[in-house]
Amino acid sequence: MENPAKKADSENVTILVNGEAKLVRAGTSLDELLDILNLPKVGVAAALDAEVVHRRMWPETILTEGHKVEILTIAQGG
């Protein structure tokens, strides 16, 4: 993870993760993103541009410039 303010180039892409800009290496998968962010993989769900991405598809879902990623889990709620 590098400075998100840095402009995207051929090696990196800027994506939005839970509303925050992140710069990741081009070719990074959704599965790898969770590793990079040190997030658990159970009890979580992910959406890409408002579409749910099933867990089994995470490794082959490659993040590209401008993707909006939402990574969710459970929280207290009635």
């Binding site: 839970n18 509303g19 962010l37 040190n38 997030l39 658990p40 159970v42 009890g43 979580v44 769900a45 939402e70 990574i71 969710l72 889990t73 459970i74 929280a75 207290q76 709620g77 009635g78």
Partner: peptide, 29 residues
């Protein structure tokens, strides 16, 4: 019951998910 919200790094604390799973209760989102 629980809600679905953006994940936050939990640091060293146990997540709600892990705690509820540990207590063997059924979780209704």
């Amino acid at each position: 019951t629980v809600a679905i919200r953006r994940i936050k790094p939990t640091g060293s604390g146990q997540s709600l998910y892990d705690m509820l799973r540990g207590l063997k209760v059924q979780i209704l989102p």
